[in-house]
Design a protein around this nucleic acid. Structure first.
Lengths: 181, 181
DNA sequence: CTCGCTCTTGTACGATCGTACAAGTACGAA
DNA sequence: TTCGTACTTGTACGATCGTACAAGAGCGAG
């Protein structure tokens, strides 16, 4: 009928993916609906099904968008670790900073739980689960990289579910202990 | 109308909570419905709203039931650790055994993500998040207990989302490194 | 026995869901 | 300019949802 706004299909695709990501962060995968996404993106309902035929497509696009955001975060982590004099301290600070945006953190665990249930989402979850160990590997080796990543995931989960702050000196110390061979 | 089965309100309450737990494990909190729970418990739809007025009540009951299951697991962990000659090895075996029932494991993380979103569920999540560290504390102290628990949570999450098995010698070694002060 | 309360069940209502689709609009190709 | 295609939008349909509720059935108290 109208077509008020400027025509820009790719921008709409991206806006819908970003809006989906936000809805997932706020309501969870299971309560994500076409209508909530359309409202968040300020687009008509029909736009969601035009670009993403089914709800699963829409959710997958939202999670993919979240993983892309996460990947740029990871590159920043890589840069900051490279320039840091003390890896354990730098990593602790990165975790503390990461936790300031709890919405983003919730999204990450939402993705993990969704991937645990749906094998099709597993490649997306791998980006985070394997991405951080790869960054750590040059510093401490593959095994310790995996262990430190697991430790950080667990500490973040603890902070997330109990709404407490991270014990930063304790985390630094734990990273150091895991880094020793 | 009929009332076919034997009258046993408390058994029905428990059956509904158990069925809810299973539905959450299979479909997630967000996709848990009265009807799915009633079907799983083999009870009429009206039974769910009679015992649990709202859907939130039903879900909370399911999660509470899951936490009670988890708590008996924790007591078993406590016993097996007490009798073990090597804590790190015993803990590794417990993690391996725990991962054989992925449904139960998914449920635990589902609870964590739900607690991260809804503060009312936080006391339930605390049972797991604080329960294991308390068990470990006598062996390695409070800080290392927290760290080892976080490590285990992270390792379990990794195994869950990538559908891989745990590197058992690696985990044992990591626990030992964290236990050293 | 009978009354009264708790429990049981089937059905129904309004809201919201995923999805389909027709009608209208913009824009590049000819 | 005209036409075809890609995009936009509002509306609608059937399914499923949470919840309410009336009508029956069991059962202990008197």
């Amino acid at each position: 009928m109208t077509g008020r706004r400027t025509r820009d299909p790719e921008a709409r695709r991206a806006a819908l993916a970003a809006a989906t990501m936000e809805v997932i962060a706020e309501a969870g995968v299971g309560r994500t609906t076409h209508r909530a996404v359309a409202a968040k993106a300020d687009l008509p309902l029909g736009a969601t099904t035009y670009y993403f035929p089914t709800l699963d497509d829409l959710i997958a696009a939202g999670l993919r968008h979240a993983v892309e955001t996460l990947q740029t975060d990871l590159h920043q982590w890589e840069d900051r670790l490279r320039d840091a004099p003390d890896m354990a301290v730098a990593l602790t600070e990165l975790v503390r900073d990461y936790l300031t945006d709890r919405r983003q953190v919730r999204l990450e665990y939402e993705l993990c739980v969704a991937a645990a249930r749906d094998a099709a989402l597993r490649p997306l979850a791998d980006v985070w689960m394997r991405g951080l160990p790869e960054i750590l590997q040059p510093y401490v080796g593959a095994d310790a990289g995996r262990d430190i990543c697991a430790l950080i995931d667990g500490i973040i989960l603890l902070a997330l579910t109990t709404e407490t702050d991270v014990d930063e000196p304790g985390l630094t110390s734990a990273i150091r202990r895991l880094a020793r061979d």
